[in-house]
Design a protein around this nucleic acid. Structure first.
Length: 499
RNA sequence: GCCCCCGUCGUCUAGUGGUCAGGACAGCAGGUUUUCAUCCUGCAGACAGGGGUUCAAUUCCCCUCGGGGGUACCA
């Protein structure tokens, strides 16, 4: 590997649960690095934990990555020259490596049961040993004896023979040189009793077999890296460059958990209708900065700007509010036609149009999206905010009813008088509407500000939204007049309840 | 316990041996003779603490504290 060797990197998740923003951020950095350098991005599934892997988790992962737009050049579904890409299908490769280490005396069989080991650790602790370690009880067990027991079907593991008194230095792109002493490591297991390799072992074999130039992964693996380096040396492999990126924390500064507010699976963000490019933009800013004050990035701008050298070593906290803000920025710059296409499923779900929509409905949706897209942060709330424009029935905000409709005695009279005036407007446009509205309000002696608020509540059901006259224009004269009269009546009879 | 990593406004971050320590989100206050979930303006808000090194430390070193990770037949 020379500095100009083409980059090959991988994302290597273990499919044990749904994919959340922390996982996605690590994948993103790896993917961006590959795309920035024109390298190859490989997806490898580390499914060696038979107890925890699930097929659903794999599907969830692939779908999440597809949605975010992180495409992989080699891996599940696309194949590649370095496959298979599921570790569970590479068992013979690990076995070969294991045989090599065994033959060279760099690894050995161990027949200690988990219970026996626990007892051993317990005993060490009771003697005041602070860091209980495997005591090497099978280190020098005769190989012939071991073979006999294995042939008799006895369950066993394979351990690496760790040489003591070695300094192991990890040269890390974001952290610099980190050094460890091999005496703090013990004779760790490389192949489990079920014949599956342990992470540290499989990872080294695969990263080498797949010709990885860089190993980019979450910081929690930093402490494992010296063990892996020992394996690289024992196998006679060349080291890749290491890069440990910081983890993502929740607002309690703990590692991100599924139960944290606002923290969800990546696919649930799709369900809410936040744009994938916005999620990517937000995630990229977690632990990386371009060195300029730019914060808005399209996918291709990120690829252009991203470097590992500008990844911060310190962990960062996931902040939903910033995600929302980035989400709305991306919504704003998306042209209305594309937005409609993306948002259509949400309009359909809210029964705001047929599936597919009629031409008439499409025109109404276009007008609605134009009016509302600057104040939404995802496609769902964009669609929700359009209900009063697209449906006869729309929910009334109870707080708004109290504040804007029930507070002043003159409100029903004002609504009726203004409705009468609006009914006369021939040319239903912004200026004629405003003029008729203000004239009617003033000549009736009403408080125009209050009338505006009351009208907004009556016509849209919400105390907030775009400028009132724009709303009225979009809703249309007849519906505006009808709604104002109806609500005025409801206020008079007291059938409209606040909270 | 032991090993390792990390520590700039509430949050994401920029930054340098000499800066008014900059920006963004959130917050607050105004403005847009009409709401704000839009837009504009302004305000507030940080170098974890203690020792060094230095003419000078947020920046370099050490300690403490705090957070995180590893210490598995999880990854």
């Amino acid at each position: 590997m020379t500095p100009d060797t083409p980059v090959r990197v991988r994302f290597a998740p273990s499919p044990t649960g749904y994919w959340h923003p922390g996982n996605a951020r690590t994948a993103l950095f790896t993917w961006l690095f590959a795309r920035h350098t024109g390298g190859t991005f490989v997806l490898r599934i580390e499914d060696t934990d038979q107890a925890r892997n699930t097929p659903e988790a794999i599907e969830n992962l692939l779908e999440s990555m597809r949605w975010l737009g992180m495409d992989w050049d080699e891996g599940p579904e696309v194949g590649g020259d370095y496959g298979p890409y599921f570790q569970s299908e590479r068992l013979d490769i690990y076995r070969q490596a294991m045989d090599q280490l065994l033959a060279e005396g760099k690894a050995y069989y161990c027949f200690a049961t988990p219970e026996e080991l626990e007892q051993m650790r317990e005993e060490q602790r009771s003697r005041g040993i602070s860091a209980p370690k495997y005591d090497g009880r099978y280190r020098d067990y005769p190989i012939e004896e071991a073979r006999k027991r294995i042939e008799a079907g006895e369950r066993h593991v394979v351990r690496f023979r760790t040489e003591l008194d070695q300094d192991v230095v990890v040269d890390d792109i974001v952290r610099g040189e980190v050094s460890f002493k091999s005496k703090d490591l013990d004779d760790f297991v490389i192949v489990k009793g079920d014949g599956f390799p342990v992470y540290n072992f499989a990872c080294v074999i695969d990263d080498t077999a797949m010709a990885m130039t860089h190993v980019i992964r979450a910081e929690e693996h930093l402490s494992n890296t010296p063990r892996q380096i020992l394996l690289y040396r024992a196998m006679g492999y060349e080291l890749p460059r290491f890069c440990h990126v910081p983890v993502v924390l929740n607002t309690q500064r703990k590692k991100l958990s599924k139960r944290d507010p606002g923290v969800q699976s990546i696919l649930s963000y799709r369900g809410e209708g936040i744009l994938p490019e916005a999620v990517m933009n937000y995630l990229a800013l977690l632990g990386w900065s371009p060195g300029s004050e730019q914060e808005f990035f399209t996918r291709s701008q990120l690829i252009e700007a991203f470097t590992l050298e500008r990844v911060s070593p310190s962990p960062s906290v996931f902040d939903v509010r910033k995600l929302e803000s980035v989400g709305s920025e991306h919504l704003k710059v998306t042209d209305t036609d594309s937005l409609i296409e993306l948002a259509l499923p949400f309009f359909v779900e809210l029964e705001l149009c047929a599936d597919p929509p009629t031409g008439e409905e499409l025109a109404a949706i276009k007008a609605a999206v134009d009016l509302l897209k600057t104040r939404a942060w995802n496609l769902r709330n964009l669609a929700e905010s359009a209900i009063y424009l697209l449906r006869g029935e729309y929910p009334m905000d109870p707080k708004g009813v109290n504040k804007r409709l029930l507070k002043h005695d003159e409100t029903p009279a004002a609504l009726e008088a203004i409705a009468d005036a609006l009914a006369q407007v021939e040319d239903w446009g912004l200026e004629p509407i405003e003029e008729a509205f203000r004239t009617a309000s003033e000549s009736g002696g009403f408080h125009t500000g209050n009338a505006i608020h009351a009208t907004r509540m009556a016509v849209t059901g919400s105390p907030k939204g775009p400028g009132l006259f724009e709303c009225l224009e979009a809703v249309g004269r007849d519906r505006v007049v009808e709604r104002m009269r109806k609500v005025a009546g409801q206020v008079r009879t007291g059938e409209l309840a606040g909270d």
